[in-house]
Nucleic acid binder design. Structure first.
Length: 736
DNA sequence: GACATATCTAAAGCC
DNA sequence: TAGATATGTC
């Protein structure tokens, strides 16, 4: 048992407590992964538990892989154990049991792009061209419902029969029908349907309940309702459930994470033991203290305080820049200054609040020839050409996939436009067939234009040919064949632009990805390959060995650590963002994000802000972030700069707005949000305007307010037009 | 049906 | 400001 000696007493206590519910409150940098992996090793080595009987779920592939690697290192050799993400665990269940839900065994997984395309086609068919209702709008509601296990009918019942909910109901149920028809599930479905299987098939549930004698859940603070239910159902029989998390690092509530899951674990699971891991092995004492001085402003926290035996270290650096370019310049300069022979560029990270901030840093870094890497933004697999080829492969695997077909039917150009597609869809609907089936009908193809019919015929031939042979061919062969025979490669080659060249390169890179997979698994089937890439994510792409400064959002940095960390944009309105005030405890979530950002740093931490910032084409004076003001002043180095810039700041009113209370309703909303730090109803802003008032709109010109009804302001403009404008959004200003 | 031009809108993103 | 999408023109 000497491998356990590396653990501190609390970690050891957690690792040795195997029976019954266990909550491990693992503060930032407390080396929870060691604790978990040792616990697994202990179960296997000392308690005689078979790896097969243990389930460990994580949120990211990366976390799952790391855990597996470390367990295998402790045990020695490969282990047959479910260390999986929530989604892949559910996928495994569904591959075996999806039939009872009426799904085909080889259903496909739709990613957000496919979801959008699906909703778009529904919206189009329903003839909804109200701009208010975008596919994204419906999808966020649908996703919300699925996380709470609310089906379309329940949604309707819950929301009454107002026209809006009826509309959402219609789209939601059409979306569900479409997925089912295409034999597809979206990410939310994976969880939802796994739970459904458990609910509807007692034998299936029992099979997994019996099997998984021990269950572990990582990042428990980020679980949502349906994930909670999944875990809870599985744990019911043996009740040996161990969850690890940190309520201070819950930063995904906006995406459905339910912080109550961790706060109320002890209520949910009777006789739960709680172990707190409070020793931090990552950061210097100063960094830890600074992070703590911020997070302690949150209410509703589990009581814990991190400590470290590390030295104080340097103070936190603070720089108030003139503008965002000066800010980026400073960061690049500091990286140059700190970079020495024993430091790699990959020791530095710039963690910002929004992806839009990355550009100025990219510019500043390349000016100094500092290598960098931007994470986030477009996923590799989201690039158009890669997605197109994936769509072809999906069609080969699942000919019923209309969404995939629609994506590539005119890529390369086959002379098939919107009108033709409409016709085909209508026909498919009448016949109850998939689009590909319709296109296989000679009569239908003949009725198309000469160009279209030739192109379509060839496309259908290629796809069906590969579909028939898919089990005899290697994935890379299928890929190569599709690339050439669909004419896709030729299209790019003929294009002869730099852009097309880049796309061809990406497609070659994708091929080497396929080769890599085949190297690991000689028997890799198309279905397996599609499955693996469907569940990949961008952070999984982060390569710690690449010698480059890392640029990413604070969100994606969770779970990572760097010797040197920069947190730019410490300004009210940017961080915390204005939207933080839309939600009840939005500000607290932002503060947790700040805490996550600060605790990524091992040795040194820089905070910066800009006195003036251009966002969305508008330049504004800024005010330092309230989080900055919350940091213990004596932990901050940089007073000189702080003092120097103070004059400029004091030219403004203390709330960040120069002059009087603003008249522009949008600024009033921001102003009010600042004043109260509470959720301010846009109606309150509208109330500032009254009937008869003269107003100006930058686009529509001057006009007179006709009436104010809740959040809607009706204005008659001087050109005679009458427009309804939403308070808080309309750039109206009052005229004297 | 393809391409050019106008218009709109704006966080975070795990799987 | 910039990108994505809607609309208009040939």
């Amino acid at each position: 048992m000497d491998y356990l000696d590396k653990l501190n007493p609390q970690q050891k206590e957690a690792a040795l407590h195997t029976e019954g519910p266990l909550l491990i409150l693992a503060g930032a940098g407390s080396d929870k992964t060691s604790t978990m992996t040792h616990r697994i090793a202990y179960l296997i080595k000392e308690k005689g538990v078979r790896p097969y009987e243990i389930l460990a779920v994580t949120f990211t592939n990366k976390a799952a892989k790391e855990m597996r690697d470390r367990v295998e290192a402790l045990i020695g050799g490969n282990i047959n154990m479910w260390i999986l993400t929530f989604h892949s665990a559910c996928l495994r269940v569904l591959r075996k049991h999806a039939e009872i839900l009426g799904y085909d065994r080889d259903f496909v997984v739709y990613d957000p792009t496919d979801q959008k395309a699906a909703v778009k086609s529904i919206v189009k068919e329903m003839d909804l061209n109200d701009k208010k209702y975008t596919p994204a709008y419906f999808l966020s509601i649908i996703s919300d419902c699925k996380e709470k296990q609310v089906d379309p009918e329940e949604f309707l019942a819950l929301n009454g029969g107002d026209p809006k909910s009826v509309l959402i109901y219609k789209v939601y149920s059409a979306y569900e029908a479409l997925l089912k028809k295409n034999n597809a599930m979206d990410f939310d479905d994976l969880l939802l349907n796994a739970v459904r299987v458990f609910e509807q098939d007692e034998a299936a549930l029992l099979e997994y309940q019996e099997r998984f004698r021990y269950i572990m859940v990582d990042e428990y603070q980020d679980t949502n309702q349906i994930q909670y239910k999944f875990v809870r159902m599985l744990a019911e029989r043996h009740n040996n459930i161990c969850v690890v998390g940190d309520d201070d690092q819950c930063i995904y509530q906006w995406r459905g994470a339910d912080i109550r899951n961790i706060l109320e674990f002890e209520k949910d699971f009777k006789n739960a033991k709680v172990v707190k891991l409070e020793q931090n092995y990552r950061s210097t004492a100063n960094i830890l203290a600074a992070a703590h001085s911020v997070i302690e402003n949150n209410r509703d926290r589990k009581d814990k305080k991190l400590w470290t035996s590390a030295e104080d270290g340097s103070k936190i650096a603070y720089y108030r820049a003139d503008d965002e370019r000066d800010e980026a310049r400073y960061v690049a300069q500091e990286i140059d200054r700190m970079k020495s022979s024993d430091r790699k560029y990959s020791d530095f990270a710039v963690l910002y609040r929004t992806n839009a901030q990355s550009r100025t840093f990219e510019e500043a870094l390349s000016r100094r020839d500092i290598p960098y890497r931007v994470l986030g933004g477009l996923r590799y697999y989201d690039r158009k050409e890669v997605k197109d080829l994936i769509s072809y492969m999906r069609l080969v695997q699942n000919p019923a996939d209309d969404i995939a077909l629609l994506r590539v039917i005119n890529e390369p150009k086959r002379g098939v436009g919107a009108k033709t597609i409409e016709k085909l869809q209508a026909l498919a609907k009448v016949r109850g067939e998939s689009l590909l089936q319709v296109l296989a009908d000679e009569e239908v193809v003949d009725s198309l234009s000469a160009k279209a019919s030739a192109g379509i015929r060839e496309m259908v031939r290629v796809i069906t040919e590969y579909a028939a042979e898919k089990d005899n061919l290697r994935v890379s062969d299928i890929y190569d064949g599709l690339l050439v025979k669909t004419g896709y490669l030729k299209m790019l080659e003929d294009n002869n632009t730099l852009e097309a060249e880049g796309r061809i390169e990406n497609l070659m890179e994708f091929k080497s990805v396929i080769y890599d997979y085949e190297k690991d698994d000689m028997q890799l089937s198309l279905a397996e390959f599609m499955e693996r890439i469907a569940l990949l994510a961008e952070v999984d792409n982060h390569d710690e060995n690449e010698n480059a400064v890392v640029l990413m959002t604070m969100h994606s940095a969770k779970g990572l650590e760097f010797p040197f960390v920069f947190l730019p944009g410490m300004e009210d309105g940017l961080f915390p963002g204005w939207r933080a005030f839309d939600r009840e405890d939005g500000l607290e979530e932002e503060r947790r994000l700040c805490y996550v950002g600060m605790t990524r740093a091992k040795e040194r931490l820089w905070l910066t802000s800009a006195n003036m910032r251009t966002l969305y084409g508008k330049t504004d004076l800024t005010r330092e972030s309230q989080f900055l003001r919350e940091v213990d002043k004596h932990l901050i180095d940089g007073d000189a700069i702080y003092e120097k810039k103070r004059d400029a700041r004091e030219m403004m009113s203390p709330d960040g707005f120069s002059g009087e209370k603003p008249f522009n309703p949008f600024d009033q909303l921001r102003y009010a949000k600042q004043q109260t730090h509470a959720n301010v109803n846009a109606a309150a802003v509208a109330a500032q305007l009254a009937e008869g008032m003269r107003v100006n709109h930058p686009k529509f010109g001057n006009g007179t307010v006709l009436n104010v009804n809740g959040k809607i302001i009706q204005v008659q403009f001087d050109d005679g037009s009458v427009k309804k404008l939403a308070a808080g959004m309309a750039p109206l200003s009052k005229l004297d």
